[in-house]
Amino acid sequence: MVAKERFKAIFGNYLFILPALGMFLIFSVYPFFKVFQLSVFQWDGIMPTMKFVGLSHFKDILFRNPTWWQSVGNGAYITFLALTFQNCLAFVLALLVDRGIKGGKIYRVIFYLPPILSGIVVGLIWNWIYNGDYGLLNYALKALGLAGIQRAWLAEPKTALTSVAIIHMWRGFGWGFIIMLAGLQNIPRELYEAAKVDGANKWQMLRRITVPLMIPVFVLVSILTILGCMQIYALIVATTGGGPGYHTEVPVTRIISSMLGQSQFGYACAMGILFGLILLTASMIQLRISRRIKQE
């Protein structure tokens, strides 16, 4: 009888994930399977026949495709900047607004505007800001007496990637901001009041209460930031097209160009799988670290 009860309970628990699982089985499994299948074939996306090539796509990407690794490096650089600067900015803004600062309501609305904005507008605006001959940034630098460092920011090997990363971060901090704001709401206010009674100052409260309780949210935001580097494709196309040379190529631009530009679907799928593995590893490391911190 007990076993039956237990079975019933577990079955009931499964019911909760059943709708999600059903959707997953119907709509995700087949495309997933297809991507894995294509990755061992040579296929141009049109012909009814494909040629089995085994793991040679993977071998080629891993050992004989330096531009792929350069693009991974570029993606990692942008993601690293986003993880640090973008998320710090998001956290500081969330803290300030959460403190019930005057005008907090207005700021709350404003900070989410960049993600809402159309990519077309973002591209147009930032191309104008960074332009070498009549750009806003160069104009401002000249006014500040820094005419020496004026340049076409998106066109020089040294500055192109960072310039793109800045647009990406500017566009992305709003996401982190609202998740962290929601996260701060879950911290019981009594904890702060108790700490105040104990004579803790703001800085101590931040370190002892806010940050430890926010760790799961930080992990969530970090993983979403890592995934965010998949969304950078449209931005690259609108600003640099991956150039100059390969300086602003990221994995997704490589995948799309080998799929649509060179019509090598199999190769592109293999790239996609490798890229997925990299993202998965990065996310797992995040989760591990947070678990260790939690245990301490």
Partner: peptide, 15 residues
């Protein structure tokens, strides 16, 4: 013109 290497053609047309 500055920035031509990474310029989108629509920007070039504006210029």
């Amino acid at each position: 013109a500055q920035g031509v290497v990474t310029m989108v053609n629509k920007t070039a047309e504006q210029i």
